[in-house]
Simulated scan of single mutants.
Amino acid sequence: MKKTAAAAPIRVVLADDHDLVRSGIKALLSLVEGVDVIAEARDGKELITLVESLNPDVVMTDISMPGMDGITAIAHIHETHPEVRMLVLSMYDTVDFVKRAVANGACGYLMKDAPPFELEQAVRSVMATGSYFSPAIAQRLLQPSEPTVDDELTHRQVEILKLIAQGRASKEIAFELGLSPKTVDVHRARIMERLRLNDIASLTLYAVRKGLIKP
């Protein structure tokens, strides 16, 4: 990568649940003059904690992570630290993912298979212009999109769907969310009705396709 002088370092926090991926991204960014990776997170909750304590310039995060996912973390950070530029680095390139990320506060999106020089381009662009979308993603945005999971389900239903897709029983879900098992069952029935799905396998497939859980 070409090194470019910068008046002040751009402070970056990385978030990805795969150590090898984070190490690779950090190594590439270390070649860019004026960009400093100051911390790394393995999930959305850890990312929020780091942003609270370090107040970085840029967050570069995956979407699909265990526990709190990237979208939820982005929404929280955008609300509490709107000045932080949030850049999604994902393996998912569907319009649904991109629009969900942007709707929750992301200002940039690029793919994990992007050429290395694009990392520098993305970081500098979100700092200079407030946004960056790789050519491949920009092309996707021109295509018509299907309804997002947020269009189809309430926040509580999304929470329950994720746990159902992870194989949790109604009692486990009820305990984790502070609900009664009967309430969880009612939510599950409504989720199936709204999505027009008839079994747990179909719900799980939907959750994978929408990026709510990893395949």
Rank of each mutant, 00 (worst) to 15 (best):
T148D: 13
T148M: 14
M127D: 03
I164E: 05
R85I: 06
P66L: 10
V95Y: 07
P82G: 12
P66N: 13
A136S: 11
F97G: 01
A138V: 02
L110K: 03
A73V: 12
K112H: 07
M65R: 02
S145Q: 12
I160G: 00
L87E: 06
R100T: 11
Q143G: 05
M127Q: 10
R85T: 04
H78R: 14
Y109F: 12
M86R: 09
H78S: 15
D62S: 06
A165S: 15
I71M: 07
P144I: 09
K162W: 02
G130T: 06
L153I: 07
E118L: 14
L87A: 08
L89Y: 10
V84I: 13
L119D: 08
L161I: 04
R140A: 07
D96P: 02
S90K: 00
K162M: 05
S131N: 09
R156K: 07
V123G: 01
G70N: 00
P66F: 14
H81P: 10
I71Q: 03
V98N: 01
D150P: 06
P147F: 14
L141P: 02
K162V: 09
D62Y: 04
P115D: 13
P82C: 13
E83Q: 15
S145R: 12
K99P: 02
T72V: 10
P116A: 12
A73K: 02
I63P: 00
F97K: 06
D93K: 03
S125R: 03
I164M: 10
M127S: 05
A114C: 14
V84R: 03
P66W: 14
L142N: 06
R85F: 07
K99I: 14
P135H: 10
E79V: 04
G105H: 04
A103N: 14
V58P: 00
V126L: 05
P144T: 11
V149S: 09
A106T: 04
P82T: 14
V102I: 14
N55H: 13
V98E: 03
S90I: 01
I74R: 00
V98S: 02
A128Q: 12
L87Y: 07
L54E: 13
T148G: 15
V98R: 00
E159Y: 05
L153E: 05
F97W: 06
I164A: 08
E152M: 15
D69R: 01
D93N: 09
M65N: 03
M111F: 01
D150Q: 13
I164P: 03
Q157N: 05
Q143M: 09
S145K: 11
V95H: 13
L163D: 08
G108Y: 01
I74C: 04
A106D: 04
D93C: 01
I137G: 00
K99S: 11
P135Y: 08
H81E: 11
A101D: 02
D62P: 04
I160T: 01
M91R: 07
E83T: 14
I63R: 00
D69P: 04
L54W: 08
P144C: 10
V158G: 02
Q143C: 07
A138H: 08
K99D: 11
P116S: 11
L142S: 08
A165E: 07
A114E: 15
Y132K: 00
T61I: 09
V102T: 11
D151C: 12
L161T: 01
A122S: 10
L163W: 07
Y109E: 03
Y132W: 07
V123R: 01
L142A: 09
M111W: 01
